[in-house]
Write a protein that binds this DNA or RNA. Structure first.
Lengths: 127, 127
DNA sequence: TCTTGACCTTCCAGTTACTGGAGAGATTAG
DNA sequence: CTAATCTCTCCAGTAACTGGAAGGTCAAGA
């Protein structure tokens, strides 16, 4: 499988697949005579694993860690749960921040008449 | 006022204040004989304006736009409201994404026993 | 007066996770 | 055979800073 087939199968851009190989996340198993990267199903599975983990907001380094656990037959589910729980807490923290941001900004937006006059409570508040 | 006094007054790191000058967001009004940047109260007010806008998640370019409106006596509150409303919609979109992410991950975390055995629904789901 | 330490300068590099493009070689279809 | 498509490597850029090196400046104390 050449890189574009692998990238389609994994749902990732070709550039990204190459990038993941560069940073040592998922190497192409081998090269063709012409030097083309050749992928097999196992690599594609790893790429899919990474794509999904990234969609969950795990950083590349967390993906590296998860991938290590994914490939490790002896890992305990406790280790995986620890990482996922940490990530969940980060999401919850982000949600709280976003909520207070939202409320404050929504208040400003509703209190601004939004007409052609120059007085604006948003600017007054920011300045 | 030297840069460190201005940075304290504005609540921003010195590096960031210098950076904002480099990208033409807030120039230091003048330099001392020794070449030190000298800030006045007006610059500090602009820095505070930017810090608060950044805390609201406006990008640097949006800050530039808002700063233009802030300094423009002829701007209408409608222009400001337009930018703030756009930002509010982005926040709401982000909240929805984060919520579905949260629910999915929370489901996985609760379904994982988190013991010393290797079977783990989180890994099963991601892989 | 000298020195010490805090403060200031510029410039370069690194961060995160890619993305775009140039220039060149390989492969495939018609 | 040629044109289109694919692939390669390498370089540079994104956003918004942050860290550090090397060196100039300033104020206070011995």
């Amino acid at each position: 499988m050449n890189i574009s087939a692998a990238s389609k199968a994994a749902g990732l851009p070709v550039k990204t697949v190459r990038y993941y190989a560069d940073i040592g996340l998922v190497q192409a198993p081998s090269r063709s005579n012409a030097g083309y990267r050749t992928y097999d199903d196992a690599s594609v599975r790893k790429l899919v694993f990474i794509r999904r983990s990234r969609e969950f907001g795990f950083t590349i380094e967390e993906c590296r860690e998860l991938l290590g656990l994914y490939q490790d037959q002896d890992r305990t589910s406790a280790e995986v749960k620890r990482i996922a729980t940490k990530r969940l807490e980060e999401i919850e923290e982000k949600q709280r921040e976003l909520q207070s941001l939202h409320d404050e900004l929504a208040h400003l937006v509703t209190s601004c008449r939004g007409d052609h006059r120059p007085d604006c409570p948003i600017i007054d508040y920011l300045g």
